[in-house]
């Protein structure tokens, strides 16, 4: 899964959805891969309003990446090439191939296997 995906995942347990600890999930034991892709400024500009910046910073820093600015940048056009490139690299070119995501509220561990996050709960947890 792309690192961007982590910004769209929270704990599947309904009891956790309102907890601030349940998002973003903590990424641990992650294996990363970089996949070179063509930069699409239009896509990045469009996705920015949907991104929770603080959650993204938490995820990237857990993975040892400090390339993003502390404040959510205003991305309205394709003039800031440096920023676009760093967003592109972090959000889309960085793949988490294996690893785990842990809910900070209930401690549930969600495995990532062959790049696919498994958000299923066992029947006893629903």
């Amino acid at each position: 899964m792309k690192l961007l995906t982590a910004n769209f995942l929270n704990c599947s347990n309904k009891k956790c959805t309102s907890s601030p600890e349940a998002f973003p999930l903590d990424v641990v034991d992650a294996k990363l891969a970089i996949q070179q892709l063509e930069l699409k400024p239009e896509f990045l500009i469009g996705i920015m309003p949907r991104i929770d910046w603080n959650a993204l910073l938490k995820t990237t820093r857990q993975l040892g990446n400090y390339s993003l600015p502390d404040e959510k940048p205003d991305l309205v056009d394709d003039s800031d090439e440096v920023l676009l490139k760093s967003l592109h690299n972090v959000l889309l070119e960085t793949e988490i191939t294996e690893g785990k995501m842990v809910c900070g509220n209930c401690g549930h561990v969600y495995p990532i296997f062959e790049g696919i996050p498994n958000m299923l709960l066992s029947e006893s947890e629903i």
Partner: peptide, 22 residues
Amino acid sequence: DDNGLFITVQTSFLDGIRLGNG
């Protein structure tokens, strides 16, 4: 098709995916 993104998640319905009313 050269734009946009597919995201695959193993889950029931959209459980665990943060989409709100989106």
